[in-house]
C-alpha cells in the first residue's frame, strides 16, 4: 500500500517537474499580468512614475470611456472591421478552396496553396508597407481601379470613407491563404462516400457543395470564425503602420487605442480599462459561439 502511494507521489512529482517550466511561464507572463492589469484598470497609473505610484480611482476609467469619442470610435470601427473581414474572408476562402479541390491537379494545388499561404508568414508590418505603396496615388491598386473605370479614385489611406475598407481589404488578403489551407485540409477529411451517395441521388456540383461540403466543414468554419473574430478584434499592426488611426479617428481600433493611451498618453490605468472591455467582448463572443455550436450539433 505504502509502495503504491509512494509511486503515485513520485508520478505526480515527475509530472509537476515536467510541467513546471510552462506553469511558471503561464503564471509569470499570463496570470500575474492579467490580475495586475485588472487592478491597474482601477487606478490612474502612469507607468513612467514607477511601481506603486498609482491612485485608486474606482470605476472612473470604466465610466469615462463612454463619453470618450476616441474610445467610441475605436469600438465602432473594430466591430465594423470584424463584421466585414471575417465573413467575407471565410466565404472567399471556402469558394477558392472548393475550386482548387475540384478543378486543379494535386501538384498544382499544393503550389497554389503554399503561394497563397505566404502573406500569412509575412510580417504584417512588411505587408502593410507594400500595401501603402499599392494604395499610393500612382500605385498599382489605384491604377487598377482607374483601368476598371473608376475615373477619379481617392487617396485610399487619406480618405475618411476608404481608409478603413482599405485596411480591411489588406487583412482579407493576408488571411486568405491560411483560411484556404485549413479549408482544404477540412475538405480532404470529408469522406468520398458522401459525395458518391449524393451523386447517386442525382446531386450536381453545386448541390454537392451546398449539401455535403458546407455542412461537413462546419467545425472548420466554426474554428476559423472564432479565431478570425478574436484576431479581428485585436487588429493593430496594419492600423499602426498604414494610417495611425487616421484620417481623424476613422481607423482607430481598440488595440490601437489601448496602445495610444498607454504609450502616448502614458495612462496605463485607462489603457488597462479599455483592455478589460476588449477582454469582456471576446469572452462574450466566445461563449455565445460555443453555446450556439453545442446547441445545434445536438
Amino acid at each position: 500500500m505504502s509502495g503504491k502511494k509512494k509511486k503515485a507521489v513520485r508520478e505526480q512529482l515527475t509530472a509537476t517537474v515536467f510541467l513546471l517550466p510552462s506553469l511558471i511561464g503561464l503564471v509569470l507572463f499570463s496570470l500575474i499580468p492579467l490580475v495586475f492589469s485588472l487592478f491597474i484598470s482601477l487606478t490612474d497609473w502612469n507607468f513612467l512614475n514607477g511601481m506603486g505610484s498609482w491612485n485608486f480611482i474606482g470605476l472612473e476609467n470604466f465610466l469615462d470611456m463612454w463619453t470618450d469619442e476616441w474610445f467610441l470610435a475605436s469600438l465602432k470601427n473594430t466591430f465594423i472591421y470584424t463584421i466585414v473581414v471575417v465573413p467575407i474572408g471565410l466565404f472567399l476562402a471556402l469558394i477558392i478552396a472548393a475550386l482548387i479541390d475540384s478543378f486543379i491537379s494535386d501538384r498544382l494545388a499544393n503550389v497554389l496553396r503554399v503561394t497563397m499561404y505566404m502573406p500569412k508568414i509575412c510580417n504584417i508590418v512588411a505587408s502593410a508597407a507594400i500595401w501603402i505603396m499599392l494604395y499610393s496615388t500612382y500605385g498599382p491598386f489605384t491604377q487598377l481601379m482607374r483601368l476598371l473605370g473608376w475615373e477619379n479614385p481617392p487617396h485610399f489611406l487619406a480618405s475618411y470613407t476608404w481608409a478603413l475598407p482599405a485596411i480591411m481589404l489588406m487583412s482579407i488578403w493576408s488571411g486568405l491563404g491560411y483560411h484556404v489551407f485549413i479549408y482544404s485540409a477540412g475538405m480532404a477529411g470529408i469522406s468520398r462516400d458522401l459525395y458518391e451517395a449524393a451523386e447517386l441521388d442525382g446531386a450536381g456540383a453545386i448541390q454537392k457543395f451546398w449539401y455535403v461540403t458546407i455542412p461537413q466543414l462546419r467545425p472548420t468554419t466554426f474554428f476559423l470564425m472564432i479565431t478570425g473574430i478574436i484576431g479581428s478584434f485585436k487588429v493593430f499592426g496594419s492600423v499602426n503602420v498604414m494610417t495611425q488611426g487616421g484620417p481623424g479617428h476613422s481607423t482607430y481600433t481598440l488595440v490601437y487605442y489601448i496602445y495610444k493611451s498607454a504609450f502616448s498618453y502614458y495612462n496605463m490605468g485607462y489603457a488597462s480599462a479599455v483592455a478589460v472591455i476588449l477582454f469582456l467582448i471576446l469572452l462574450v463572443v466566445t461563449l455565445v459561439q460555443w453555446k450556439h455550436n453545442n446547441g445545434s450539433s445536438d
Partner: peptide
C-alpha cells in the same frame, strides 16, 4: 487582456522595425 497588450507590444517592436525601413 494582458496578452493583448503583450501582443500589441510585439507589434510595436515590429512597427518600429518598419519605421526604420
Amino acid at each position: 487582456m494582458r496578452k493583448n497588450l503583450v501582443r500589441a507590444g510585439s507589434a510595436v517592436l515590429a512597427a518600429a522595425m518598419l519605421t526604420g525601413l
